[in-house]
Design a binder for these strands. Sequence first.
DNA 1: CATGAATGAGATTTCATTCAT
DNA 2: CATGAATGAAATCTCATTCAT
Lengths: 220, 220, 220, 220
Amino acid sequence: MADKGDIQESGKRGMILAAALMIFSEKGFHGSTIEEIAEEAGVGKGTVYLYFESKTDLFVSLVEERLRELKEIVVKHLEGLEGAGEKLTESIKLHWKFFNQSKEFVRVILSDLGGLGKELDERTRDARVRFIEVFESIIKEGTETGEFKEIQPRMAAYAIEGAISFVAFENLINSQGFPSISDPSQLVDFCLNGLCRREGKGEARCFPDKYKIESSESEG
Amino acid sequence: MADKGDIQESGKRGMILAAALMIFSEKGFHGSTIEEIAEEAGVGKGTVYLYFESKTDLFVSLVEERLRELKEIVVKHLEGLEGAGEKLTESIKLHWKFFNQSKEFVRVILSDLGGLGKELDERTRDARVRFIEVFESIIKEGTETGEFKEIQPRMAAYAIEGAISFVAFENLINSQGFPSISDPSQLVDFCLNGLCRREGKGEARCFPDKYKIESSESEG
Amino acid sequence: MADKGDIQESGKRGMILAAALMIFSEKGFHGSTIEEIAEEAGVGKGTVYLYFESKTDLFVSLVEERLRELKEIVVKHLEGLEGAGEKLTESIKLHWKFFNQSKEFVRVILSDLGGLGKELDERTRDARVRFIEVFESIIKEGTETGEFKEIQPRMAAYAIEGAISFVAFENLINSQGFPSISDPSQLVDFCLNGLCRREGKGEARCFPDKYKIESSESEG
Amino acid sequence: MADKGDIQESGKRGMILAAALMIFSEKGFHGSTIEEIAEEAGVGKGTVYLYFESKTDLFVSLVEERLRELKEIVVKHLEGLEGAGEKLTESIKLHWKFFNQSKEFVRVILSDLGGLGKELDERTRDARVRFIEVFESIIKEGTETGEFKEIQPRMAAYAIEGAISFVAFENLINSQGFPSISDPSQLVDFCLNGLCRREGKGEARCFPDKYKIESSESEG
DNA sequence: CATGAATGAGATTTCATTCAT
DNA sequence: CATGAATGAAATCTCATTCAT
């Protein structure tokens, strides 16, 4: 009823968010209960509703705030850097580091890509888009200065985000069988330079027409 | 006695899977109800349980069967191709086409990356891993023949899978604002050759040590 | 729709009843399913409905027929016997033997004493009453000839039935801890000597007034 | 954390138990629904689950607590009494009175004798056994002092419990046709004089061997 | 007569949210 | 501000019964 933003006196709000991160990452959005989160946070069930409007609001707030935080870290570190390659390298590495510092957040951010219902999807999409725009603007700069090849900046931004996310996810979650990676150099290299060796000519061996998508089925 | 798999007389099982794909993609796993799925399939609620043990089993079966199908398509098309680059190109394009033919499946496959609880996660992870191994083995081949640079094959495989998935997801879902991509050439190029222009030397400009991850926080 | 009594050609009906006895005794009325019973009987689910109108009808038929069978056995053996004591002794022993020959029937008959809902209760009560009337008439005869003391015959009949049932139930079901009884002599003795006139003193040491029940309504 | 037993502030738990007694006695365990019970108790459906873990737990708790109550009443009244006969008389009368004061409880206690599935059976059996042990120990005392004849105490205890239960059940339930008994004297007499030593002749007129049970397996 | 695939009413149980204290 | 007992909508899953073959 109150605006839920002017209470913030004690550290309760932060404790709830921290608890929510733990629980959501363990059990997913629907598998988690407000009661568990409240208990983990050391507060009463009703207290959660003093700081967040609903379970959904809690989840979305968590994603938004963490992504905003990540964006701020990245943007701050980009100051003073020159060249799109430099900036992108830096961005990827910071992103990697951030994900690797919170196994929980990787789970949470990936658990929400379309499977949580319209309400959640729409609100978190915005937060995600705002973050990915950092990548997008770097790539745009690179293509404009000629440092990068001609490529749709937004597509490339999502490709990079996807690459980082999936690798980080497997690196953290799937403990056994996956070689634990602590150095993101290979990932940076993959994004900047791809898989192919450099010494040849090697323009991408594509078959441009063969796989064009004609109709995208249902609800065309 | 009935193994839930030997009934198969009519096409009911397929109809239920098709309906499940629709509904799950719209509302996610927990947001969907068996009743909706049954109605969409044109069968009674109880009929779903004649073909699938539970809602979870239905979801997992859907993911497993579609991924197996995709894997078979890819593997079949790789026959006769020579060179890791050629194979990877082909694989990415087929993957792209498959995803673009079913907006629903992209949602479903991405809605399940850690947010649905242990039971679902474990069973679908296997299916996913089995599929990604196709990429992995191609990359391994490429690194061994020297066609590809030295890189951890599994990491690269997840990076590619992540890139395709995120781009396909945004391409299909986020209708407004995102330029619809019908040609995967740029994506193939990104994976094979990265973002940087080729004419220079340009070994990846990494800062190998600066971002090493020391401790991965929680529950470490 | 047909009268369900004129089909009876093959032994299917008997097989279903035998299977029902097994399953009902293991899992109780509500815990058993028609499917299990049909499978145990080696017939199809629909076949059960050719011989019995419903699950309830199957259960009731089972109780009725077995009790009728028991009654016939008892009545037949009573022919030629003289004296109420002799007759009652014989009856109890036959009853005991019958129960001990079918652990399953004891369970079934005791699982239905008021806990199965009005429909079942009413129909099986009749069968039970008709059987207990055998005891009742013997006791009546005994009280009239003076062999037994003055007692309400129906009450005594139920007391005996209850004694036999509970002892048989514990004897059969509760395997561990309960001494297995193969000889009903002590039980016969318990029942008979409570009824027979006594030559000695020892009129029952009751406190006739002290425990009279004033109101039998609950929540009075 | 909440042990489901430490809430107990208001009388809600008792109200639910009272409502459960009513409903279970009317419709049996499986015929009753939590919704009915909650409504009867004047609480919400979810509230039942605040005090009891499940429907089964509610039923079992009801049986356990009432039987414990009955046992306490009986044990307390036995203090100061001398002689097994006296004690048994008292016990039977109190038992009778207790049953007659709650028609509902008689139904409930008798509805659960093997027909409700393993889970229920096992938990309630204990409660019943603990109660019947009161009879058993009195009888044991009687046989040891010579007041009672030689008899297996546990068997006799079950015989008495069965006699009381069946008579009480018919007395209360089967309103028409059965003479309502308010005085348990005849029942006490029935039980006692089956146990007491007899000065006269009249050793039980049994036919010890004729009815021995050879095999107790069903369908022999 | 026999079957078993199909159905859908209905039951238990969970949990986000409220509100009196 | 904080709490947690109470609520009831809603979801999964079961199973007696039907009916086309």
